[in-house]
Computed example of a mutant assay.
Amino acid sequence: MRPIPLSALQHHAFCPRQCALIHNEQAWADNFLTAQGNALHERVDNGEPEIRKGIRFERNVHVCAEKWGLTGILDMVEHDLHSGSLKPVEYKRGKPKPTPIDEIQLCAQALCLEEMTGKTITEGALWYGQTRHRVCVAFSDSLKAQTTEIITQVQQLLNSQHTPPPQYGKHCKACSLVEICQPKLFNQDRSPHYTAQLFGED
C-alpha cells in the first residue's frame, strides 16, 4: 500500500475527482488562491525553531504513520516543555470553512504524531490568513471517526486508479484544476447516453 500524502485527505474532502486528478494522474495547476497559499506556507516553513514562554515551536515537521498509511509535512508543532504535550498547527490562506475539511486534515496530522511519539494528541489549531485568527480544534471521537473514514475512502480511490466523473457545483469556481477537469463540458457530453442507447443498455 502506497503512503497517502496528508494533503490528499483535504483534496478528497473538497472533491474526490480533484484528489484523483492530483494524486493518480499527477495533474496540477496553480491559480491565485493556491499561489497565495504557497506563499504563506513558504513564510511559515522557512522559520527557525524557537522557544517562547515554555513552548518550543518546530516548523516544517516531517511525519509518517504506517498504521494509517499516511505521510506528509506539518506546518508547525508546538511542544509544551512543561507538560510534554504536542499540538499540530496548520496555516490556511483563507477563512474557516462551513465543512470540516481543515479539521480532518489537522486530525490526520495528530494521528501521525500519536503513532510516531506514543503520546495522545488532544487538540490542534488552525490559523487563517484572511481573518488572521487562530481556531482551536479538539480531536473528538466524532472528528477522529470522520478522519479515519476519509483515510479509508482515499486509500480505496488511489488504489483503484480510477478518476470519478465531475460533479459540477459552486466549489468548482475555486478549484485550480477547473480547466483540466472541465466539469461543465463533461456534464454536456451525451456520448455515454448515446452509447447506451446504441447497445440497448438504456
Rank of each mutant, 00 (worst) to 15 (best):
residue 1 M to Q: 12
residue 2 R to N: 12
residue 5 P to M: 15
residue 5 P to W: 14
residue 6 L to E: 02
residue 7 S to L: 04
residue 9 L to P: 01
residue 11 H to C: 11
residue 11 H to A: 15
residue 12 H to G: 01
residue 13 A to H: 04
residue 15 C to F: 01
residue 19 C to H: 02
residue 22 I to G: 00
residue 22 I to F: 03
residue 26 Q to E: 11
residue 27 A to K: 15
residue 27 A to Q: 15
residue 27 A to D: 09
residue 28 W to T: 07
residue 28 W to L: 13
residue 28 W to C: 07
residue 35 A to K: 14
residue 35 A to V: 10
residue 36 Q to P: 00
residue 38 N to D: 11
residue 40 L to D: 05
residue 44 V to A: 06
residue 45 D to T: 10
residue 48 E to T: 12
residue 48 E to G: 09
residue 50 E to R: 15
residue 50 E to A: 14
residue 52 R to N: 13
residue 52 R to W: 13
residue 52 R to Q: 15
residue 53 K to F: 14
residue 56 R to W: 09
residue 56 R to G: 07
residue 57 F to R: 14
residue 57 F to T: 05
residue 59 R to W: 10
residue 60 N to P: 03
residue 61 V to G: 03
residue 62 H to K: 13
residue 63 V to D: 00
residue 65 A to C: 08
residue 66 E to P: 00
residue 68 W to C: 02
residue 69 G to V: 04
residue 70 L to K: 02
residue 70 L to V: 02
residue 71 T to W: 09
residue 72 G to N: 02
residue 73 I to E: 09
residue 78 E to I: 04
residue 78 E to T: 08
residue 79 H to F: 08
residue 81 L to M: 14
residue 82 H to E: 15
residue 84 G to W: 09
residue 86 L to F: 06
residue 91 Y to M: 12
residue 93 R to P: 00
residue 93 R to S: 13
residue 96 P to S: 09
residue 98 P to D: 11
residue 103 E to T: 03
residue 104 I to Q: 04
residue 107 C to E: 01
residue 107 C to L: 03
residue 109 Q to L: 04
residue 110 A to L: 04
residue 111 L to P: 05
residue 116 M to N: 05
residue 116 M to P: 01
residue 118 G to V: 06
residue 118 G to I: 03
residue 119 K to Y: 05
residue 119 K to T: 05
residue 120 T to M: 13
residue 121 I to P: 03
residue 125 A to C: 14
residue 126 L to W: 04
residue 127 W to D: 09
residue 127 W to N: 08
residue 127 W to Y: 15
residue 128 Y to W: 12
residue 129 G to L: 10
residue 129 G to N: 14
residue 133 H to Q: 13
residue 136 C to P: 08
residue 137 V to C: 01
residue 137 V to W: 00
residue 139 F to G: 01
residue 139 F to W: 02
residue 140 S to H: 05
residue 140 S to P: 03
residue 140 S to Y: 06
residue 141 D to T: 10
residue 141 D to S: 11
residue 141 D to R: 13
residue 146 Q to H: 09
residue 147 T to E: 05
residue 147 T to M: 06
residue 148 T to Q: 07
residue 150 I to L: 06
residue 152 T to Y: 08
residue 154 V to L: 03
residue 156 Q to P: 00
residue 157 L to E: 01
residue 158 L to M: 07
residue 160 S to R: 05
residue 161 Q to I: 00
residue 164 P to K: 02
residue 165 P to S: 14
residue 165 P to C: 10
residue 168 Y to D: 12
residue 169 G to N: 13
residue 172 C to R: 04
residue 173 K to C: 07
residue 174 A to I: 05
residue 175 C to M: 08
residue 176 S to I: 03
residue 176 S to W: 01
residue 179 E to Q: 13
residue 180 I to D: 06
residue 182 Q to A: 12
residue 184 K to A: 13
residue 184 K to R: 15
residue 185 L to T: 14
residue 185 L to V: 12
residue 186 F to G: 07
residue 186 F to A: 15
residue 187 N to H: 15
residue 189 D to E: 10
residue 190 R to M: 15
residue 190 R to W: 12
residue 191 S to L: 15
residue 192 P to W: 10
residue 194 Y to P: 00
residue 194 Y to R: 14
residue 197 Q to D: 13
residue 197 Q to L: 14
residue 198 L to E: 12
residue 200 G to A: 12
